[in-house]
Design a protein around this nucleic acid. Structure first.
Lengths: 141, 141
DNA sequence: ATAACTGCAAAAGTTTTGCTACCAA
DNA sequence: TTGGTAGCAAAACTTTTGCAGTTAT
């Protein structure tokens, strides 16, 4: 019987297993690299970071792992304007993004009020919101 | 002296001139095709529609024309999740989008309340909103 | 006349896929 | 043992670019 995960590493293995995936060396590395990131790397950047941990992981595996984990709700795929897709782990509570137009930095924020308004608007049009994207492209004041 | 535009066609020519672009046969066709669309075609679809009006317009010209007109605020480039970019004329008042997950249809809506909340949130974080994207991925209730 | 423009072909960039070998369970 | 998985190379797809010839003004 599997007890509580003993370490970060065991945790990753559990996440993979729970998603119905084999806990391969490569996937553990990718997932560790992503979950250690506090920003939103694209596939290439994630590949670079993963290689620091394990230098034998291909870009293909990055894409395939992200797709699998996205299917299982473990990661989110973000797609900002004109950029390649970026990824984040889904463990953080839901939030939206402010993109600083001058620096490219991404800031997370959360607004219960906006969420409620969105649901309300959708409902009026006969819809229910499955998920949403809100991005504010901003400049410092 | 150029008077008021006499027709839809003259209008298009004026728009192009006002953007500092030559009113070529191809651009007139692209712009006519786009402004006749009440949905949001991607480059390929716009190419198809343009060819109905003038069969000698290349995809390259579609892209180049969209980029030029976007620069001049005449068209907006929309980028939904995992799709190629779509385009719309900028003449309609600002609105956001509901994407029907089952049909792929895009519905436009507008909410002054949400706009205000966005500005407020950005301001609290020291930013001002230059533009934003709000997309609700929905299902019929 | 001439600077802007077009189409073509090729390139660039991201993401996916077919295949053979390999490995976790 | 064996079905899932990895890497590679190639393909698919969207978008951009260099270039040589054409056109709007």
């Amino acid at each position: 019987m599997a007890g509580k995960p003993q370490s970060r590493y065991d945790e990753l293995i559990e996440i993979l297993r729970a998603s119905g995936l084999k806990a391969t060396r490569q996937r553990k590395a990718v997932l560790l690299a992503l979950s250690s990131s506090d920003d939103h790397p694209d596939a290439n950047e994630l590949h670079r970071r993963t290689r620091v941990l394990d230098d034998d992981v291909s870009l293909t595996t990055i894409y395939r792992t992200m797709s699998e984990l996205e299917k299982n709700g473990v990661v989110h795929r973000l797609s900002f304007e004109g950029e390649p897709a970026r990824f984040e782990t889904a463990d953080a509570p839901h939030h939206d993004h402010i993109i600083d137009l001058d620096t490219g930095h991404v800031i997370e924020f959360q607004s219960e009020k906006i969420e409620r308004l969105q649901a309300e608007i959708a409902r009026e049009l006969g819809y229910e919101v499955v998920h949403h994207r809100l991005e504010l492209y901003c400049r410092k004041r």
